[in-house]
Nucleic acid binder design. Structure first.
Lengths: 219, 219
DNA sequence: GTACTAATCTAACGGTGTAAAGTAAACGGC
DNA sequence: GCCGTTTACTTTACACCGTTAGATTAGTAC
């Protein structure tokens, strides 16, 4: 029996209610505060009811994650207007760390949860989105790296856009994730986050550029 | 009543048995596989018995962590003989990532578990160890950064050893932690870990150095 | 031998994710 | 309008988790 239009809409509405309630809970209280029972209770259901709409807890988190990846990419779209690709990479880096700092729970879910991909493998549409700079932050960075590479801005020894993108990503991820896991560690004597961000992005770029001095000019 | 010598030794032996069993379990199966019940069972106890020797689960993990921090620092002592501080920083970076890759569960526990410090605040002895380059990897790196700084090897705009150390640490941590959380992600098209490591350490250092060309010579 | 202490046990509490079985409502075909 | 099927939800239950309380046992001190 084919489900009616009405049913499909209602189904989607319930799904959205589950997701938005789950999101609110973990944005406020962190990922470990989210339990199926609490989500269910907050929308007037019992825990097993969620299994009608999602295969398991991981699928709920993965769906939130999917949406948040889009949010991060949208966040970066504003940077597309920056003409100079090197300056754009720099701004992407700072924006990335800023996003992580302002949405620590989102960030933890997206980039610091092991095996999330294992739990819920991406669909074909997801994989397609991953290669679209407008929909995926990594693709956007890679696209910009390629631009700088094509313009001959990097040292001749650096030719692999994927490798450079992965390294730049790792650099900002390092700053972001250390801030999240150890940022409030009182005996760590942390320098201000934005200073660490600038040194990271500045040093990595200067180290990659053919003419390091041009960075001072553009920033 | 003062506990006898015999009792104290036996107490320590049980404590060691708990720790070594816990370590074996999470080295083999990861941190989430470690439960008090399983640890206890593996050494012929019941779960509540562990509470005689440790305040809670966090204290067990924190103690493992403390030991592993020492192991990492010991791992670095071999690098102390490298005369050139810049080359030493480079080798520390590569060694750090290698350690993380070879001991992913140790690394996750040590640097990717949020609030571990909150769970079990360090003792005064621990804090003292944190400032000893022979006992703490971070202190060792900072010590080396200071040496390079004093030798005038870095750009004049980089003067803060703590800030530089934190940034260098973040860079290698980024490579290491992405490898652990996403290293087996099949649609990520990762370049080889040691290529990413070298690009990271090389680019950061070149970006910080007053005379970037000298890096090629030393490596 | 007795009093005390420390180590360990069993039993239990409240929490987790999830599976199985039952119920009530909505639907399509006649 | 009724019947069989499907869907969305319920209650109940299982196996696990960290942790606490109370009983029990062994060992030491006097």
């Amino acid at each position: 029996m084919a489900p009616s239009e009405r049913q499909i809409q209602e189904q989607a509405a319930v799904k959205e209610k589950i997701l938005s309630s789950a999101r609110e809970m973990f944005v406020r209280d962190g990922i470990e505060a989210v339990s199926l029972r609490k989500i269910a209770e907050s929308i007037g259901y019992t825990a097993p009811a969620l299994y009608t709409h999602f295969a398991d807890k991981g699928e709920i988190l993965a769906e939130l994650c999917r949406q948040d990846f889009g949010a991060l990419a949208g966040h970066f779209n504003k940077l597309a207007r920056i003409a100079d690709p090197v300056e754009r990479i720099y701004r992407i880096g700072l924006g990335y760390i800023r996003f992580a700092h302002e949405h620590p729970n989102h960030y933890r879910l997206m980039f610091m949860t092991p095996n999330l991909g294992k739990i819920a493998p991406p669909s074909e549409a997801d994989i397609a989105a991953m290669n679209d700079p407008d929909q995926d932050a990594y693709a956007f960075l890679r696209h910009t790296v390629r631009e700088a590479l094509d313009a001959g801005r990097f040292c001749s020894e650096y030719k692999d856009a994927e490798l450079l993108t992965q390294t730049l990503w790792a650099g900002v991820h390092g700053v972001a994730s250390l801030e999240i896991t150890h940022g409030d560690c009182p005996w760590c004597d942390w320098r201000a986050l934005d200073r660490r961000s600038k040194v990271m992005c500045g040093a990595m770029l200067r180290g990659l550029l053919k003419n390091p001095d041009e960075l001072e000019a553009t920033l």
